[in-house]
Design a protein around this nucleic acid. Structure first.
Length: 280
DNA sequence: CCGCTGGCCTGCGAGC
DNA sequence: TGCTCGCAGGCCAGCG
């Protein structure tokens, strides 16, 4: 589920928690099967009674800010999701890792089936900023005004020139929040083949790609409306973004622009989809 | 420093 | 129907 737009949806859906106190916070029984959650309970006990001030998103990370200096850095990984519990009697989902017992309903649960998610405590905000993935993070693909100049500048860096654009787009140091689906979708919209080398891309193509990235991510965020709903009613609908996918997951079906068959390749170990006719 | 490969996990659907 | 296998939208350690 979670690329930048889905993480932003999650952040928005968590807004009922803002300004509320956490009565207690617990690593669940399920979480104790995994090393990364073991013997960490004491560390998060410090958040007891704390008021949640805000939740920020940086790339695909969520940063939970409280009255105290301590900060929680949370990544959804491949399968992590937050679920709001609207009743005190509601059971925890089977892969619940962290339970936030709030002063008022709803409570919140971090559920992560594949356990690739992250939930780390930092002593202060500054140390989060110094954490390498945050510090080195590229431009925000979901910025209201996509910083095209900065995008072009970063794309111009030497180490990208000999690499394939499809692989480069997944680098969070370039566009933070980009993921494997919207990588293929952005390139389809820009009509650029994923295996083109960065050095081969013209100035016009680069600029148009930047615009297409921004358009794709914003459109994804917008069409997640139903995921937003599903967040409140966990067994509800999923997002709508898949309804407009041009290429992702469409191997063998026909391109909606030219009726050519969509191709799938593995690029740097990741599935990559494109139309070999539309995309130059 | 860099990029690439494989590992971390569970669940699901295709194919037999 | 039931089994196995391959694959899944993430990152990161370790290697060359």
């Amino acid at each position: 589920m979670p690329e930048g737009p889905e993480v932003e949806c999650t952040r928005l859906a968590l807004s009922p928690l803002i300004g509320k106190r956490i009565l207690s916070i617990k690593f669940t029984k399920n979480s104790q099967k995994y090393q990364k959650y073991k013997n960490k309970q004491q560390e998060i006990n410090g958040f007891k009674g704390q008021k949640l001030i805000k939740i920020e998103r940086k790339g695909k990370f969520l940063i939970w800010v409280f009255e105290i200096e301590k900060v929680i850095l949370n990544h959804l990984g491949m399968s992590g999701k937050w679920i709001l519990l609207t009743s005190d009697k509601q059971e925890l989902p089977s892969h619940a890792k962290v339970f936030l017992n709030m002063e008022d309903l709803p409570h919140a649960v971090f559920d992560d089936t594949r356990n690739f998610g992250q939930f780390r405590v930092f002593n202060n905000y500054n140390s989060v900023s110094e954490y390498r993935p945050i510090k080195k993070m590229g431009i925000d693909g979901l910025a209201n005004k996509f910083p095209i100049e900065e995008f072009l500048e970063k794309l111009n860096k030497k180490n990208y020139s000999e690499r394939e654009i499809g692989a480069v787009l997944l680098d969070q140091k370039l566009v933070a929040g980009m993921g494997n689906i919207y990588k293929s979708e952005s390139l389809a919209l820009a009509e650029i083949k994923p295996m083109r080398l960065v050095k081969e891309l013209s100035e016009n193509e680069r600029e148009f790609l930047g615009i297409c990235i921004s358009k794709t991510l914003h459109k994804a965020l917008k069409s997640m409306g139903s995921t937003f709903q599903a967040f409140r009613t966990p067994d509800g609908q999923e997002g709508k973004a898949q309804n407009w996918h041009q290429v992702y997951g469409k191997e063998g079906s026909f391109c909606s622009k030219c009726s050519n068959k969509i191709t799938k390749i593995i690029q740097n170990g990741r599935s990559t989809f494109f139309c070999s006719k539309c995309q130059k």
